[in-house]
């Protein structure tokens, strides 16, 4: 298990990461979510020693992460980049060898992984000859070729077409099934919600919410009530005496923070017409994330 504890890093006056603590257990996919500049990349880069933290520890199975661990981890940096003139098979084998895999195995694995990513007929093409999407696949192949125990992927879904998104999702599921831990960052919250076992929400260098997707959705302390009214005699929003998250004349989503409110909301909805739908669930990740991100902005404004 990867454990990051109280990680802090400042660049001059700029606090990039402030006391971040998170864990990535084996066999789990952890989504790392936050606005731009929240400290996701800094945290991920520090796992590979690319950032020297001011404070905090990073351990794998209890021992401090060092170069011998880096060769067992796979990494996809936010800033994609490979050698443009190098043939893709050679390139993947090179990065595998850098992680201590012998040349023959590295070569075989490079071929196998390229075939599995539908690049089997491009083995000896230079990277720059490939389309942008295929270069992305090669980048992914580099991070996977060593069968890493931990995969750290910074925005892996950025710039992928829907087919590639599915492929990547399958690959991650497969790796996790074979016991690897995965930490990936993303802006696409629907995707995170679908794929991840756990998520960590980071805002302004600090972790604001963490846990299973369910826990995080529940942590907001509110529920989303979806209401539909058949042939309303007045707009639903007017009938209900409270803010509507989304909605039209005949349907809407309402936030409630206490189950005791259910009865009164239902009574109000009935004044608009026949209620055909009345179910409630935890808010989706997008709403939770938005409320966390904006609440911290508000807090900031109040301080300044």
């Amino acid at each position: 298990m990867l454990h990051i504890s109280d990680l802090s890093k400042s660049y001059g006056d700029l606090v990039a990461v402030n006391g971040v603590t998170l864990s990535v257990p084996r066999g789990r996919i952890v989504g790392f979510v936050g606005p731009n500049g929240a400290g996701k990349s800094t945290t991920m880069r520090s796992i590979f020693g690319l950032v020297e933290p001011d404070a905090g520890t990073i351990t794998w199975d209890g021992s401090p992460v060092g170069p011998e661990h880096h060769s067992r981890f796979g990494y996809m940096p936010e800033q994609r980049g490979l050698y443009p003139k190098m043939k893709i098979r050679e390139q993947i084998a090179f990065f595998a060898e850098l992680k201590g895999i012998d040349r023959k195995t590295a070569n075989n694995r490079a071929v196998a992984i390229l075939e599995s990513l539908d690049l089997g007929d491009r083995l000896n093409d230079q990277l720059e000859k490939l389309s942008h999407g295929n270069q992305q696949r090669v980048q992914l192949a580099v991070s996977l070729v060593t069968n890493p125990e931990l995969l750290v992927l910074d925005e892996p879904f950025n710039g992928l077409d829907p087919v590639a998104v599915n492929t990547l999702q399958e690959v991650l599921t497969e790796r996790v099934a074979s016991g690897a831990g995965v930490l990936f960052s993303s802006h696409q919250l629907d995707l995170v919600e679908r794929i991840c076992d756990e998520i960590v929400i980071i805002v302004k260098g600090e972790v604001r919410a963490a846990g299973t997707v369910h826990d995080v959705r529940a942590s907001a302390g509110i529920r989303h009530l979806s209401i539909e009214v058949d042939r309303p005699i007045m707009p639903l929003a007017d009938a209900i005496n409270r803010p509507v998250v989304t909605g039209s004349t005949s349907q809407g989503v309402v936030e409630i923070s206490d189950d005791s409110e259910l009865e009164s909301v239902l009574a109000q909805a009935r004044t608009a017409g026949t209620v055909t739908r009345f179910d409630y669930d935890l808010p989706d990740l997008q709403s939770v994330f938005t409320s966390i991100a904006t609440s911290s902005d508000i807090a900031e404004q109040e301080i300044s």
């Binding site: 980049g81 050698y83 990065f95």
Partner: peptide, 17 residues
């Protein structure tokens, strides 16, 4: 310069000092 401008250096340095 090539390694720096293509950003491949980030990947190389994740496994090599």
């Amino acid at each position: 310069f090539e390694e720096k401008s293509t950003k491949v250096v980030e990947l190389v340095l994740s496994s090599v000092r």
